[in-house]
Design a protein around this nucleic acid. Structure first.
Lengths: 191, 191
DNA sequence: TCATAGTCTGATCGAGTGATAACGGAAGAG
DNA sequence: CTCTTCCGTTATCACTCGATCAGACTATGA
């Protein structure tokens, strides 16, 4: 039941934001009753944190499972990372939906997720990108710009899938591959 | 008073989403009492629509005021448009905050804003981009990808300014110019 | 068989939500 | 002066929110 509640919570929080999602809707989606949320988790906020924790754990599992071809060059490794990231963003749009919802104003939720999840990953990305850049394999962008391109072009279209579908119709079958390739070329060649 | 209510509504809706923003908070921010919202507008939804309408009117005013150098080439005109768009997104982050909030799930609000505001502008952008591309001045991207780069790289960092500030500190003075230049180079050279 | 721990259920709490009605006052027209 | 119209204020409506509680159900083990 804990897992069903976390699944339902992710969908509801991603769709309506922290304030807009109701514990009753989450419970109903999970096939449970509303007080079970306060039984298995202390509060709505604790449920939100648990759901976000699990989501980032999924992300790490997917990125860590990147097949690292032995001896592959730095750029090849970075390209694998980009492909995995785009794939995860398409399969699990909830992560960036929640982040976009909570990044519009300073809030305890934003401070919590930044210090616990985002900032450490920015650090890792910065180190990795500096290494690739010093090897001369990619464009002259700072880590912040790389981050912005990853999120803005690699994840946002999936986070805003309902809008995108209304504008451009159903997504192509090779959408993820095509987007990852474009993104890698963008980061390699640069503007 | 109508203008103060619209200003306050934009800030609250952008920060907390349609469901999460309360009419009392909007009224208090505007220095008014809550029933005045239902007096000047029919309902919370009508207030939201009026605020969004005014926001898109501001966007049109800014984009329409783009200084069009006589005889300037197609790419130059498109570059001016990009600069104006990035500048507006930085000065008025509420637009993309609201769009990101409402694009995470199908809703009456999303359908309304798409048919009334987004779809027509997509149409204009597509025609303009096709003209620039056929002139061979820019990269081989479809309009959907251009749209995604404009929003994802040109607007999202400002929509998520609270997150961005926590991660990368205060923004540089030349942030808008720098971003617009990068974006123009990206669209001109392509991946 | 009984006791215990873990989980679920229904009822209910106070607080906050959008919306409405009744009333008051200010300004302009006749 | 009086009537009318516009706008603001107060009070209150029914509803939903997150949270809490007592009691019921289930399973395990002594």
């Amino acid at each position: 039941m804990v897992d069903q509640l976390l699944d339902a919570a992710l969908i509801e929080f991603a769709a309506h934001g922290y304030a807009g999602a109701s514990t009753r809707a989450i419970a109903e989606r999970a096939g449970a009753h509303q007080p079970q949320i306060n039984y298995h988790f202390r509060s709505k906020e604790a449920l939100w944190q648990a759901a976000v924790d699990r989501l980032f754990a999924e992300l790490d599992a997917e990125l860590g499972a990147t097949p690292e071809v032995l001896g592959e060059d730095l750029l090849g490794r970075f390209a694998s990372f980009v492909r995995a990231f785009v794939g995860f963003s398409a399969r699990r749009p909830e992560l960036h939906r929640i982040m976009n919802q909570e990044s519009t104003a300073d809030s305890p939720q934003l401070a919590w997720v930044v210090s616990r999840h985002i900032a450490p990953r920015i650090e890792v990305l910065s180190v990795a990108w500096s290494a690739v850049r010093e090897a001369g394999a990619v464009a002259d962008l700072d880590p912040a710009e790389v981050w912005e391109l990853l999120i803005g072009f690699g994840a946002l279209p999936y986070a805003n899938a309902p809008l995108r579908r209304q504008l451009f119709g159903p997504v192509r079958a090779d959408d993820v591959d095509r987007r990852a390739a474009r993104l890698i070329a963008l980061l390699a060649a640069g503007p």
